[in-house]
Design a binder for these strands. Structure first.
Lengths: 335, 335
DNA sequence: CTGAAAGCGCTTACAG
DNA sequence: CTGAAAGCGCTTACAG
């Protein structure tokens, strides 16, 4: 059984209040009293109970992070940024993986609402809206990361998908490509809408006709990249000379399909993608990408959430769009 | 302000106890009463406060996970296994990154002790012993993952490093290699001791002299892999024909060094490593590895911790050694 | 500079 | 099947 503040008080011959003051460094305590209390704490191995503190203060210093899968390096890196920002401010983060299941999201949100976390950082997937709406209605501090569910007005930190896609497409056009397939994400996801929009804008700006049969929406996963690429090479004529993968999972699928088709990148087809994630174990990274700086994204999102937790008074809605960067490497060639 | 159990009770015309019973599904409640209470809960949007519940019950249903860096795919995958196991049992996990800093470890442990987490899952680094000893003395539920700090008796779940290293070395020997450099981890880390031991045992079993100048301890990071490999190719004669990297970070450094030296794998030198982590974005994985199944490792560790949290009575010490597997690919050649 | 008392929102052993 | 009362371990506004 751990000693409580009461035992410390008894041992130091003071009241509970005084002990509370020295523990929290608040209010006046004479230095002799402080010393006595500190000695008692020491001797008893007293560890303040923050459960009761939280109950009184209605503040847990814990936030919830909900992503689809921490194992996806994009989310891993975001998570690290979040944890660092929270650690600096003395908060802890509870990690949740939903695997894109609305039921798991529900479950997590319910449990964490019961645990009275101070706020939520959520990377929403397409079909989660109901639970999220209810969070917003309850005015729980909440910031979205990366994606913005349709119709929900809440704070968000995201990369500039439109501009990123524009730059990437423009780069491909500058290499002489005019038939560029884009393997985007789900039609309803704000990120894939923005990426497709950037792609279209670049085409239009450079007098290249947008061919709707080169725009493929699908999940942000390898299967989409793989099967769509196989499809493209079987059925589309004239074949595209470049493929723009909407994220790195899709890119991995594209790579595999091209490998299985016995083709070479960039000799037979140029490939570029969103998100720069394979660098860690590659001596010489190869893929041309748009980097969204996920660490910064997580860090910024956490800071925004902490700010909102700080001033609960005004329920302000804030959208932070982070700049992205085109990193040219060796997966695209001049045609 | 959220409604409390008191308001629900008033609205339903029952006592607090009764509300508590229906919320927790414990004890007898007539179905009419239950219905009335449930309606009140519904109408008020009552969300039980688990802070106060935790205070009473002395149980938070939260555990702490402390790793050096979630961004390292080995830990990412372990983390996912842990989170899944905890989620199944209704616990949440707080994620902490120490960056191998003993001070950060201290800080996290103190804060989380104050938050009264139900237990700790820790991947210790070499110099953390003091804080960890104190945790063990306090009989806080604790299980180590992957590594075992010297001198501390506590539960641990780890891969079979010795056998893994033995198999990997034996495989290299079977290809005709007799000068095999091993780039192991820190001298004091149990994992690197075991890997070095497995390496030596394999050499001895196959009548190959163990050359101490081919055994390189260092950090589990890219720098060690990089600089040691450069060193090897400048200074060691006769040169080793194979390099055994102690983990995947070291392997990445080895790869980069070999690339920078203008050499090819496996034509000029064979390379094999611990941990299979690059598969995700690679259509055709190349590196021959020992897979430690980090997902399983995390899952198992969490289960062990949850078991220990369950029966607090006996402070049993348990060591679970998980089997590992040699996965032969294309980074080693016959000599 | 120090303290008495109420209260944060639950649960539980006991009585009826 | 239902409830009164004590208590989990803190903090705070107020008084002295």
């Amino acid at each position: 059984m751990r000693p409580t503040i009461r035992e410390v008080a008894r041992r130091a011959g003071v009241s509970l209040i005084t002990v509370s003051r020295v523990v929290n460094n608040s209010g006046y305590v004479s230095s002799e009293t402080r010393a006595r209390v500190e000695e008692a704490i020491q001797k008893l191995g007293y560890i303040p109970n923050n459960i009761s503190r939280s109950l009184r203060l209605k503040k847990t210093n814990v936030i919830a992070l909900i992503v689809s899968d921490i194992t996806n390096p994009f989310w891993t890196t975001i998570t690290r940024g979040i944890e660092d920002a929270c650690h600096e401010q003395g908060l802890n983060v509870i990690l949740c993986n939903t695997d894109e299941s609305p039921e798991k999201l529900d479950e997590y949100v319910n449990v964490l609402l019961q645990k009275r976390v101070d706020g939520f950082l959520i990377a929403p997937t397409t079909d989660d809206t109901d639970t999220l709406i209810s969070l917003v209605e309850q005015e729980v501090p909440l910031v979205f990361i990366d994606r913005h569910p349709q119709t929900i007005r809440a704070s968000i930190v995201r990369g500039d998908s439109e501009v990123g896609a524009y730059k990437l497409t423009e780069y491909l056009i500058s290499l002489g490509h005019s038939r560029i397939a884009i393997l985007s994400g789900p039609e309803k996801a704000s990120t894939s809408q923005q990426r497709t929009a950037g792609y279209k804008r670049a085409c239009q700006m450079h007098q290249i006709a947008v061919d709707p049969s080169l725009i493929f929406c699908g999940e942000y996963n390898q299967e989409h990249g793989y099967h769509t690429t196989l499809n493209i090479f079987e059925q589309i004529h004239p074949k595209p000379t470049a493929i723009f993968a909407g994220n790195s999972l899709i890119a991995a699928g594209v790579f595999k399909a091209i490998y299985d088709l016995g083709l070479k990148i960039p000799a037979d087809v140029s490939v570029a993608a969103f998100d720069d994630l394979t660098f860690r174990f590659t001596p010489e990274p190869f893929l041309t990408v748009v980097d969204q700086f996920p660490y910064q994204m997580g860090y910024t999102a956490a800071q925004l959430l902490l700010k909102q937790i700080g001033d609960q008074t005004k329920t302000t809605y804030e959208e932070i769009v982070l700049p992205v960067e085109l990193i040219v490497r060796h997966s695209c060639r001049q045609v």
